[in-house]
């Protein structure tokens, strides 16, 4: 029976028509994480929409994506069929890990998805608004413990920016790093910490169920259908977006770069991709070309500044 089954898959695989470009997508993280899911969604949609007949996903995990990035930059030079998924976390990891390979060593194609950070407290907490939290922080920064993702990641950066905007020394924040959003969420729900910071998607279900209180979100505008104010409205001049992007190999000719960009644009505009964004709860933040490159430079400079403020980068 197993043979029969395998044979069916084999037949199914072979009956797919052949397309021009066979892409290999590097997910610089372990299976299961955000970058891996992005890469695997790209794989599915590219095959579905006929952009590419055969797409392989390869996991090269390690050190906030910098290992995958370094390997990609050196091994795929000039290969127009290789892509890598990355994101804002990579910007921070390159700085904290002192990675010799940076985003300048690959060819960023487009930003695909984005997510804003959310500041939450347990529903039972005395802190009702962002102003309450800022007040507590000003009174005794050590007494306010923040749960979030890994040290130097987006969540940590957001806390550093909030402290700075509130006029509190960013090196004094009591940030408790957890390995993933899940563990941090458990700590917040269990009232082990004062507040939590992570992508809004991590908290959404809990906020809707009323077990967490959403104090603010980190976007330039409110999230549609969510009541919480932005950090800006709360008097803190902070905007943080945790975005994910796709980049191509270094050393491509202009035509090759244009071809890859066209494929990615086709993907981003496709119905299949929009469907994926909806089921995964990702926001469409498609941005390509020079606009994306300019935004990238701005993000890198800002991140370096805040990491120095927190004391993670000398």
């Amino acid at each position: 029976m197993k043979h029969f089954f395998l044979a069916t898959i084999l037949a199914g695989a072979m009956s797919l028509p052949a397309y021009a470009a066979d892409y290999t997508i590097i997910a610089p993280a372990n299976p299961g994480g955000g970058w891996d899911q992005t890469a695997r969604s790209l794989q599915t949609v590219m095959q579905q929409e006929g952009i590419s007949g055969n797409v392989q996903v390869q996991n090269v995990p390690g050190a906030g994506g910098t290992i995958g990035l370094a390997q990609f930059a050196s091994q795929q030079k000039g290969n127009a069929n290789a892509l890598i998924v990355g994101g804002y976390v990579m910007v921070g990891a390159i700085l904290t890990n002192k990675s010799p390979v940076t985003l300048k060593d690959v060819t960023p194609i487009a930003r695909l998805t984005g997510e804003y950070e959310a500041v939450v407290v347990p529903a039972s907490s005395d802190i009702k608004t962002m102003a309450d939290l800022v007040e507590a922080l000003k009174k005794d920064p050590g007494a306010v413990s923040w749960a979030g993702g890994s040290a130097g990641g987006t969540d940590h950066i957001a806390v550093g920016l909030i402290a700075k905007a509130a006029g509190v020394d960013p090196t004094k924040i009591n940030y408790i790093a957890y390995s993933g959003g899940g563990e941090a969420l458990a700590a917040i729900l269990g009232s082990q910490v004062t507040a939590g910071v992570s992508g809004y998607g991590e908290f959404e279900a809990q906020v809707k169920a009323g077990t967490l209180r959403l104090l603010a979100v980190s976007g330039p505008e409110r999230i549609a259908g969510v009541e919480a104010p932005t950090l800006k409205e709360s008097g803190l001049d902070v905007v943080v977006e945790n975005w994910r992007m796709v980049a191509a190999a270094p050393g491509l000719s202009d035509e090759q770069k244009a071809a890859v960009s066209a494929d990615i644009e086709k993907l981003a505009k496709s119905a299949g991709w929009q469907e994926v964004l909806k089921t995964k709860g990702w926001q469409d933040s498609y941005l390509a070309g020079d606009a994306f490159n300019a935004q990238l430079d701005k993000d890198v400079a800002a991140t370096e500044g805040v990491l120095k403020d927190i004391g993670l980068v000398k």
């Binding site: 299976p31 299961g32 993933g180 899940g182 563990e183 969420l185 458990a186 729900l189 279900a205 809990q206």
Partner: peptide, 8 residues
Amino acid sequence: LGLPTTAT
């Protein structure tokens, strides 16, 4: 809780 606690 929607908490994935392991890679699996």
